[in-house]
Simulated scan of single mutants.
Amino acid sequence: MITLQTMRWLGAPAPGGLALPAADAAPTNLYAPRGVYLDQQRLIAVDTGNHRVLIWQQLPVRDHQPADLVLGQPDFTHEGPRAAGRGPANGFHVPTGVTVAEGRLYLADAWHHRVLCWHRFPERSDTPPDSVIGQANLLEIEPNRGGAVGPTTLYWPYGVAWIAGWFYIADTGNRRVLGWRGLPEPTQPPDLILGQPDGWSNAENRGGPPTAHSFRWPHALAGDGTTLYVADAGNHRVLAWTPPPTDDRPADLVLGQTDMQSAFEQPHVPQGAHRLRFPYAVACTADRLCVADTANNRLLVWQPLPRHGAGLPAQAVFGQADFAGSGENRWQAIAPDTLCWPYGLCAHQQWLAIADSGNNRIIIGQWADG
């Protein structure tokens, strides 16, 4: 039996469990967080609704613990796009995905259509980024650099990942995944464009129905060096490539759909262990895959890691009492083991961090197999 035990609740508490936690800008508060990262050293929360990033320099040891650092705002009490009016050079607009790679911090600043990079991990609040991917400089913020899509432009990049020596961006608005061997330079063309026939195309599902090598909204990525997983949220599925692709080719696995040509969605009915509705996040460890089945307010878990096939059932669920449930907080009060629109995931060893967006919090859970 696979279980996940909630160990920490970050964000303000929920008064009586019925009202949402407070979301105003403070070192203890979060507003609709969409991204999260943790390792043995630190925790990073992308506080999307407050257009900032909060950093705990060590893993939190108690619930509602205040963050140590803030990025994207001048201090812990400001919020708003572009650093409360200071401009885009050190301000964000709907930041989402985050990762750390070779000591560098990367942030998907989605509505500025760019990925920001800090070449050394920040040690103080309000540290500005050092470089940018997707724009010519830190002041430009237009989709696709104000023109047509190209190999080095971005449009709503929601996800970033560092997997087995490859750096990936889920370029959501351009319906594609970009990949580089190693850490990219700011203007370096990608080594991989997945989901489109070339660097100048961005049609939804390549202009037709879903296929094994098309996307509607690729949103997040995970992998273990043997398999690359992509959450294709708009097609209500997860696609996977084994081995990870080095060129544009069909996927080897689909989860959430019975075949590669389907994008079936039917809300308000029991979904079971096979279906997904708007899966916005994926995370994996050496032996399990976790998918944020966001619109069903649950996490689904596959163990061992699935690598080939279609429509494989999950082995466990978190956030609902069983595979039939899909209600926000199980249609009850907010509790340590309920979810409301989980939007981001990060796995590290025995830990899983969840950006529980609708509940204005981050949950840190620990796996237990019994």
Rank of each mutant, 00 (worst) to 15 (best):
L4N: 10
L4M: 10
T6V: 08
W9S: 09
L10V: 01
G11P: 03
A12R: 15
A22Q: 12
A23V: 08
N29C: 14
P33F: 02
D39N: 12
D39G: 07
Q40G: 12
R52H: 04
L54Y: 03
I55R: 02
Q65F: 04
A67W: 06
A67K: 10
V70I: 13
G72W: 02
P74Y: 04
T77Y: 15
H78C: 14
G80I: 10
G80C: 10
A84W: 05
R86A: 14
A89K: 08
N90G: 06
H93W: 13
H93K: 11
T96M: 13
T96D: 07
G97D: 00
G97H: 02
V98M: 02
R104K: 12
L107T: 00
A108G: 11
D109L: 09
V115P: 02
C117H: 08
C117W: 07
C117A: 12
P122M: 10
P129E: 03
P129V: 03
G134N: 01
L139P: 02
E140G: 05
G150H: 04
P151L: 01
P151T: 06
Y155N: 14
Y155V: 07
V160Q: 06
A161L: 10
W162A: 06
A170I: 00
R175C: 14
G179N: 02
W180L: 00
R181P: 00
G182M: 04
L183N: 01
E185L: 15
Q188P: 05
P190A: 08
L194G: 04
Q196L: 09
D198Y: 06
N202A: 15
A203L: 15
A203K: 13
G208N: 04
T211D: 14
F215Q: 04
F215M: 08
R216F: 12
R216A: 11
W217V: 01
P218R: 04
D224T: 03
T227F: 01
T227W: 02
L228H: 02
D248L: 00
G256E: 06
F264W: 15
E265L: 12
V269T: 13
A273L: 14
A273C: 15
R275D: 06
R275Y: 07
L276P: 05
R277Y: 14
F278L: 14
A283S: 11
L289F: 12
C290G: 09
N297S: 15
L299S: 02
R307M: 08
H308M: 14
G309V: 11
A310G: 07
G311V: 05
V317R: 02
F318Y: 13
Q320L: 05
D322V: 00
F323D: 11
G327S: 12
Q332L: 10
Q332M: 09
A333S: 12
L339G: 03
W341H: 09
H348I: 01
W351C: 00
D356Y: 07
S357W: 08
N359M: 03
N359V: 00
N360D: 01
